[in-house]
């Protein structure tokens, strides 16, 4: 059977159930507000948002892979492209662009200009260190970590090809701090050959 062509982000987004982005934006605002009230320290809020994002990232990968029919992402470069074009689109309805690759192909930037997490947000003086959209960095981190292990499992790759993409995600540009876009730097920290202890039982 010929391989199924991967579906475009637009096609998937058109086919899934959607909700008004305002419900999403307002709910996210409520979350950030709660965290600021509970945790008080802006750095703690950043960490909590990242953790929430990570929790989301490791769960949404299932849906991402199921709906997008992406063939095995042969490397980090391809994975980043697919996340930017298909991943962002099918969940958030917007696309990101991938830029600033380093020579080794282990670091890149994901750039977002349209961001449904943010609407009329202005950081007050008391919140200057807040990374309001930090949930996104967690989602990217969580999703990338799971990408390979799911693909490995489904496609039955040989033990030599198993990898896990652990990454570090940092904010380079933030529109809430006066920049012209949201830019996250995604850096592969280690490609870990995955332990596959049950292989012999299959």
């Amino acid at each position: 059977m010929p391989p199924v062509a991967p579906r475009s982000g637009d096609a998937i987004f058109a086919s899934v159930e959607r909700v008004n982005a305002e419900l999403f934006t307002l709910t996210y605002g409520a979350i950030v507000r709660q965290l600021l009230t509970d945790l008080e320290e802006v750095e703690e809020v950043n960490k909590q948002l990242d953790q929430m994002g990570y929790n989301i990232g490791i769960r949404l990968i299932d849906e991402f892979l199921a709906k997008s029919n992406v063939s095995r992402c042969v490397d980090f470069k391809e994975t980043a492209e697919v996340i930017a074009k298909v991943g962002f689109k099918m969940f958030l309805g917007v696309t990101a662009t991938v830029t600033n690759w380093d020579a080794e192909g282990t670091t890149c930037s994901l750039v977002l200009e349209d961001n449904p997490l943010v609407d009329f947000v202005e950081l007050p003086d008391t919140c200057q260190g807040l990374y309001y959209c930090n949930v996104l960095s967690g989602v990217i981190r969580g999703a990338l970590e799971m990408v390979s292990s799911y693909l490995n499992g489904r496609l039955g790759l040989s033990v030599d090809n198993l990898v896990s993409m652990k990454t570090e995600v940092t904010w380079i540009r933030d529109m809430l701090r006066g920049d012209d876009a949201f830019e996250m730097q995604v850096k592969l920290v280690k490609q870990v050959p995955e332990e596959y202890p049950y292989k012999d039982d299959e």
């Binding site: 987004f13 899934v16 159930e17 959607r18 909700v19 008004n20 982005a21 305002e22 419900l23 999403f24 709910t27 996210y28 409520a30 979350i31 709660q34 965290l35 909590q48 929430m52 929790n55 989301i56 769960r59 949404l60 849906e63 099918m90 969940f91 958030l92 309805g93 449904p116 609407d119 009329f120 947000v121 202005e122 949930v135």
Partner: peptide, 28 residues
């Protein structure tokens, strides 16, 4: 932000994106 026009309310996100977010709100 005050110079930006008010949204017309036509933008959408996937239901699952909202579901994941809401689920985190509850779990937190």
């Amino acid at each position: 932000v005050l110079d930006r026009p008010l949204s017309k309310g036509k933008q959408e996100v996937s239901l699952s994106a909202f579901a994941f977010l809401f689920s985190e709100l509850v779990q937190y």
